[in-house]
Nucleic acid binder design. Structure first.
Lengths: 188, 188
DNA sequence: TGTACATCAGTGAACGCGCGTTCACTGATGTAC
DNA sequence: TGTACATCAGTGAACGCGCGTTCACTGATGTAC
C-alpha cells in the first residue's frame, strides 16, 4: 500500500485543506478525524503518518485558512473594497471557505498555543493593513480605528450568521458595509 | 429519593444556571450533561425529569444568560457607558458569566431553532436599545450605526479573547471602547 | 389529624455510538549494490 | 540496468473513554380518604 512521495504529499495537502474547511463549518469539536480523513478519500488509521495529533492538524488547518485569505486579499486596495468583499451574503453562507476569525474566533480561547499564536499574528497583520487604508492624524489614531474596524467586520459576519432571520442577517451585512467601509473623520 | 417540589424547582434552576455558565466557558460541544449535572450537585440520570434533551437545556441556558445580561444592563444609560462596561478585561476573562453573543455567537449557526430564535430576538432588542443612544438625522441612520456598534462590541470582545497576546488583547478592548463609545457624527 | 397508597425526583447501571489514538499488517516504493 | 531488501503510506481492527439517552429501582413527598 505504499504510495509515491508526491502522492503522499498530495494526500497530506488534501487532509489539511479538508480539515480547514470542516473545522470552519462545524467547529473544532464538531468534526472527528474519521470524517476528515474520509472526506479526503483516506481511512482514518493513516492519519498519524502525517500529523502528531488533532491539535497539530488544527494548527496547520488554521494556518492554511489564513494563508488562503491573505492571498485572496492581496488585490484589495481600500477599506471600502475590503468591506464590500468581506460582508457579502456569499461569504456568510460559505463558512467552510471563508474568514477563519469569524468562523472559529469564539473557539480560539480553548485552542492550543500554536493555533492561537498563528491567529494572533494574523490579527496583527490585518490591523496593520487596515490602518494603512485609514486617513487620520496620528498612527495611533489610525491603529485604533483599524482595530475597531477589524472587530466590526468580523463581528458583523459572525452576527449575520448567528441570527435566524434572513432579513435581519442581510441588514447587518449592509449596515456594517456602509459604516465600516466609509470610515468617518472622527472628532477630538 | 423524592424531593419536595420547591427543592426540585431549585435543582432545575441550578442545572440551567450551571449549563449557562459551562456552555459559555467551553462551548455547546465542549461540555457533557454529566459535567453539568455533577457541577449542579446531582447525578446525570435525573436530567430527563427536567429537560427533553440537551438541545432543550441549551435553549433554556441561552435564554437565562440573555435574561441576566438584559437585567444588568437596565441601569446603563448611554453608549459610552455601555462600551466601558462591556469592553473590560474582567468581562473578557469571565466568559462563563458574560455576554452570550460574544461567547457562543460563532456556534449559533449550528444550534437548533429555539436557541437561535432567542438569540435573534436579543440582537433585535440590543439594536433598538443602542439606536436610542445614538444621535443622528434619521431613524434609519441611527439603526445602521447601532448595528455596526453591536457588531463592533461583540467582535472586539471575541477578538480580545481569541488573541494570545495580553498587550494586544488590552489594546483591542481600549480601542473599541474609544471608537464605539464615542459615536462620530458621520458625513453624507 | 392519621393512615394507605400513588407519585415522581433522583440514583446508578447500562445502551449503542463515536471519539482520538495505537497497532499489526500489507505491499508498492525507494534504495543499496 | 537489474536484483534484493528495507522503508513506510495506508488499511482496518482494536483500545479505553466519554457522550446522550434509557431504564429499573428507591424512598420521601404528596394526595385521597
Amino acid at each position: 500500500m505504499r504510495v509515491t512521495r508526491e502522492q503522499a504529499a498530495e494526500n497530506r495537502e488534501r487532509i489539511v485543506a479538508t480539515a480547514a474547511r470542516l473545522f470552519r463549518e462545524k467547529g473544532f469539536d464538531g468534526v472527528g478525524l474519521d470524517a476528515i480523513m474520509a472526506d479526503a478519500g483516506l481511512t482514518h488509521g493513516g492519519f498519524y503518518r502525517h500529523f502528531r495529533s488533532k491539535d497539530d492538524l488544527a494548527a496547520e488547518a488554521v494556518a492554511r485558512g489564513i494563508a488562503v485569505s491573505t492571498q485572496r486579499q492581496a488585490a484589495t486596495a481600500s477599506l471600502r473594497e475590503l468591506a464590500s468583499r468581506y460582508l457579502t451574503p456569499r461569504h456568510r453562507d460559505d463558512r467552510g471557505d471563508g474568514c477563519v476569525v469569524a468562523a472559529l474566533g469564539g473557539e480560539m480561547v480553548r485552542q492550543g498555543a500554536p493555533v492561537r499564536r498563528r491567529l494572533t499574528e494574523h490579527v496583527q497583520e490585518q490591523i496593520g493593513k487596515i490602518a494603512g487604508w485609514i486617513a487620520g492624524r496620528s498612527a495611533r489614531a489610525r491603529r485604533e480605528q483599524a482595530i475597531a474596524t477589524l472587530a466590526g467586520l468580523t463581528g458583523a459576519l459572525m452576527l449575520s450568521r448567528a441570527v435566524d432571520d434572513p432579513v435581519l442577517s442581510d441588514e447587518i451585512l449592509a449596515a456594517a458595509r456602509e459604516v465600516f467601509g466609509n470610515p468617518p473623520a472622527r472628532a477630538a
